[in-house]
Design a binder for these strands. Sequence first.
RNA 1: GCUCCCGUAACUCAGCCUGGAUAGAGUGCUAGCCUUCUAAGCUAGAAGUCGCAGGUUCAAAUCCUGCCGGGAGCGCCA
Length: 575
Amino acid sequence: MKDIVVKLIAKEVGLKMGDVENLVEIPPKEDMGDFAFPCFGLAKKFKSNPMKIAEDLAKKFRKELPKGISNVDFNGAYVNFFIDKKILAKGVLAGAGVIEKKARGEKIMVEFSQANTHKAFHVGHIRGTSVGESLARMAEAFGNSVIRANYQGDTGMHVAKWIWCYNKYHKKESLKKDESWIAGIYVDAIKRLTKNEKLQEEVNEINWKLDSGEDEALNKLWKETRKLSLDALEIIYKDLNTGFDKYYFESEVEQEGKKAAKDLVKKGIAKVDEGATIIDLSRRDDSSKDYSAEHSGEPNDKDKNLGVWVLLRSDGTALYSAKDIVLAQKKFEDYKLDKGIYVVADAQNLHMLQLFKTLELMGFKNVDKLKHRAYGLIRLPTGKMSSRTGDNVLYSDFKKEIVEYARKGLSERVSGLSKNELDARSLVIAVAAIKYSMLKQDMGKTIVFDKKEALRFEGDTGPYLLYSYARASSIVRKVKSKKAVKILDLKDSEVRLLKKINSFEEIVAKAYENLAPNLIANYAFELSQMFNEFYHSCPVLGSEEEGFRLKLVDAFRITLKKSLDLLGIDVLESM
RNA sequence: GCUCCCGUAACUCAGCCUGGAUAGAGUGCUAGCCUUCUAAGCUAGAAGUCGCAGGUUCAAAUCCUGCCGGGAGCGCCA
């Protein structure tokens, strides 16, 4: 309905539609109307004071109100527009939760999660995994085809450390498909290596042997433990409502990475320095673009000092930099991508810039199609969460705790549920709590993981959203016979809910544009709040407005469900 | 030392991109509301130098500069 207002103003004052669109705002209070147009900017143009302009405009508009606008008023330098609530209501009931597929039809790869084998999957990993899944769903909602890609570190120094430690100190223990056991070996390795730095030489040897593939026993152990890790991860992904269409592994691009690095040396882009193969990106005078994350404010057309990027160790083995160069190209060979999104923590911003810059120097033409969605780290109150030191909260441990907490809550409020049903619902609630808490915050912000806060199910939390949905569903279930839809006088809480539902598509578009699921999360919460206010002030069943209110409840259900779906969160029909 | 991110109520945050009318939530606290659609809910109240200082503007939490505080990164981890 905003477009009606925009068109009206644009025509009258002689501004472009787009300019007016940006100026029109929503007033801070409801009695000031539904849309407002500030006239400060017109003062010079009309050589009059803004207050007078607002008054004149309002009076002019009032003479001939367009359809959909019920009144126009002025307040200070603002022209205030009041929309016809019944027309709004009709529109909302007809089109709730619909996202117009603007025929974008692009092929988009979202690379996310990137969990490594032989390491812990801790609660910090949930953020990137949730963000990636959400972005994938948004892209699909707009009519694109999405390839969810995981890129897993199944090789490299951390694997060498794990295998070294297992062979040397844990050989007697049998291999277990147990996340915390796997994580524990790695932590033990780090501990021992920190204590005695000389041991690193033994690890280097294993790393080299794994790289060359000539030691059969090591190869076998690697394969077995790799599988254990990957199987354990699949279970987690299933919990989190995510999954992948394509798995890339570092082991696949290892050898090509070495080759690519050597080619770069031949081309004069890279060089060998102190035995290692590096690219010096510290001073570049050729033109460059800014490939930094959406979040990092100011576009930068000046050259950045990107430092030195190491591709190969001095023993010739590949670092993940070299592997990433290969992977980027491989993605476009495997699929004809229109866009490639990397969902990678902001701790790696420099790495991503170095990668994009290097690809550009190589003349890789698809570099413009690559985007980095950065997100902030999850920390513990005591500091950084780390798989290396074991200073973290394992996903599997936390899951147990939060599912148990959800189960307790459910048992208290509903009886007669089968064990299976209780388990299933507890998991949905727990996952909603976990994912929502990871998605609701601004992408650039570090999240401090606080278990007490994570186990809170009231207020601005995932369970609150599910609860709101379940309440709405409950009403719909209890309907005996359908009544005619009559729109009588609308209560404030109804109008607020209608307006909120109406803004769904705009919010989703903005979220996708900014690759920011948090906008949808915040929307879902506000939407639920408005529903709950409506719920308390407007009885549905048996009321005079039953037909209409039932439709409104359903419009809410559809919209909230769709919002949560875009976040990768399932709903419950009752809880 | 250099680069990037963050700094809004006691606590956790939204709003900043795209500047506008008395700065919004949640938690916690205080006081109410379950014989009517699920109280994981709702209503009301107390609570704020929007880190600090300049600048741009008719107008700054929002844009620019500097400083302070916290975090991350900066050559062989990923």
